[in-house]
């Protein structure tokens, strides 16, 4: 694994007219990491991605892919990137195979064998010689993934990749992305507004609102922190009695017929012991973790349009 970040955005700014679409966005995507780019519609996710792949120019700042600036060394930067920008729009009058040959011709590293390999990888062997216009959305999405990964890019950029996929397809894509990151060291930069999806897929997420990054956080790290207080919900036979048992705890309360306390892992176990000793029957305990969605709504103030 190299020390050069797969992608580095430095004070990336995009102004159109006098509207600032993207405002000093800086972030780094490390090798082998799945990085989520989260934001409500209109927050500038797609614009940022378009700048990363050279479809849009930067007003100021710079983007380096594997150390190559997209402004000054575009071909070198682009050679390391595979991407689907919005929907994977293919040439509908060509077959799936011809589409892949088309993109393979533009990238000298892709051999015929490699094309066959990625076709198998995305499971399109049976239909690859059909015209793309006969494909379902899910099949087009697979073809999109095939063209994005066939030159073994160091950085895979996917804009809203789960759009139009059924739950099985989403799960498959998620597993595949994690596998790419783990086994080939490919960095994945994925944008989405499907927050729960990002939670399952990403190592870190950046939250974008109105063209500004308001938070970058690690997802997998947070789960393992044992000293963190969380809200625990106890399913008990007599919530009111239980509340009496926990007289000493000021924060104990009843939520939807469940006893709720804020506590660390140890305190939860301790509370459970006290309840059982007091003759309260405990049917279940679960942590009410704040989902990314809650956190997201918290930081963005629940706005939907940036």
């Amino acid at each position: 694994m190299s020390l050069v970040p797969a992608a580095r955005l430095q004070d990336v700014t995009k102004r159109i007219g006098n509207r600032t679409i993207i405002d000093r966005v800086s972030l780094e995507v490390y090798p082998g990491e799945v990085f989520g780019f989260l934001g409500p519609n209109g927050s500038g996710k797609t614009t940022t991605i378009r700048m990363m792949v050279g479809l849009m120019s930067l007003t100021s700042g710079d983007i380096a892919i594997g150390g190559h600036s997209v402004k000054t060394h575009y071909a070198e930067a682009a050679a390391q990137v595979g991407a689907i920008v919005e929907n994977p729009e293919m040439y509908k009058y060509l077959t799936g195979y011809e589409n892949l040959v088309h993109y393979a011709r533009m990238n000298p590293s892709v051999t015929r064998e490699r094309i066959d390999e990625v076709i198998k990888l995305v499971g399109l062997e049976g239909r690859i010689h059909d015209k793309v216009k006969k494909y379902s959305l899910g099949m087009r999405q697979r073809l999109g993934v095939a063209q994005a990964v066939m030159h073994r890019p160091k950085l895979l950029i996917l804009d809203e990749p789960t759009n139009g996929l059924d739950p099985a397809g989403i799960r498959e894509l998620r597993d595949y992305l994690r596998q790419l990151a783990r086994e080939e060291g490919t960095s994945v930069f994925v944008s989405s507004h499907l927050l729960s999806e990002m939670e399952l897929m990403c190592d870190r997420v950046a939250i974008l609102q109105k063209g500004q990054i308001i938070d970058i956080r690690s997802i997998r790290g947070a789960e393992t922190q044992t000293s963190l207080e969380q809200i625990a919900l106890f399913e008990v036979d007599h919530p009111q009695n239980a509340l009496g048992v926990l007289e000493g705890r000021g924060d104990a309360r009843i939520e939807d017929g469940l006893l709720a306390i804020s506590a660390t892992r140890d305190q939860i176990a301790e509370t459970n012991r006290r309840l059982v000793e007091a003759g309260i029957r405990v049917y279940g305990i679960r942590a009410k973790t704040k989902s990314l969605e809650d956190q997201f709504l918290e930081v963005t103030g629940g706005e939907t349009i940036g």
């Binding site: 050279g54 070198e76 919005e86 993109y103």
Partner: peptide
């Protein structure tokens, strides 16, 4: 048709 996006992100000017 939108195909221009996948065409222009290749290592070609």
């Amino acid at each position: 048709t939108g195909t221009i996006k996948l065409l222009l992100i290749r290592p070609w000017s």
